[in-house]
């Protein structure tokens, strides 16, 4: 099987008062081998990015004491249109010599790497590392004199 390479990047802001994360821009570049149906490939990647943004910021199954409390879509919060940024997809075609059409997989690869990108971007913005999802940020500390000076 050929090697599958992909990369996603995200731009975001963190509200200092509430810790709310707002995504501004997201770009994904995926090596899909051969895009059999380019529009559908784009759809898979957009969808994967949206799911991944949900994993990183909202989606959480709560089961206190073993009893599930997230039973429906009002408590299990998946991303709505306003939560997501304008997304851009770059399709890279680098045929797989082993597969019959040269195509590689795209469903899952698109699904998993925006969450780490968001975690990294939050680290870049706040200096805090988060290793579990969803990432919950409280109020951010006031800027230090040095940070103010740098601006």
């Amino acid at each position: 099987m050929g090697l599958l390479l992909c990369c996603q990047a995200v731009e975001l802001t963190v509200s200092r008062k509430s810790g709310k994360v707002k995504l501004l821009n997201a770009v994904a570049a995926h090596d899909v081998g051969c895009a059999v149906n380019p529009e559908m490939v784009r759809g898979q990647i957009y969808g994967g990015m949206a799911m991944s943004a949900g994993y990183a910021l909202h989606e959480e199954v709560k089961a206190p004491g073993g009893k599930m409390t997230t039973l429906n879509l009002n408590t299990y919060r998946i991303p709505r249109s306003m939560d997501l940024p304008e997304m851009k997809v770059i399709i890279v075609e680098n045929p797989d010599p082993v597969s019959p059409t040269g195509a590689k997989s795209i469903g899952e690869p698109a699904n998993e790497i925006l969450a780490p990108a968001i975690a990294n971007a939050i680290f870049n913005a706040t200096g805090q590392r988060h290793f579990s999802s969803p990432i919950k940020l409280g109020a951010q500390p006031e800027p230090t004199a040095c940070e103010e000076g740098c601006k």
């Binding site: 784009r42 759809g43 957009y46 969808g47 799911m51 998946i78 709505r80 249109s81 997501l84």
Partner: peptide, 15 residues
């Protein structure tokens, strides 16, 4: 904003 209240799991709303 107009489609804010409709959930979609697959497409990421972009298309």
């Amino acid at each position: 904003q107009a489609i804010f209240k409709n959930l979609c799991r697959c497409t990421g709303y972009q298309q």
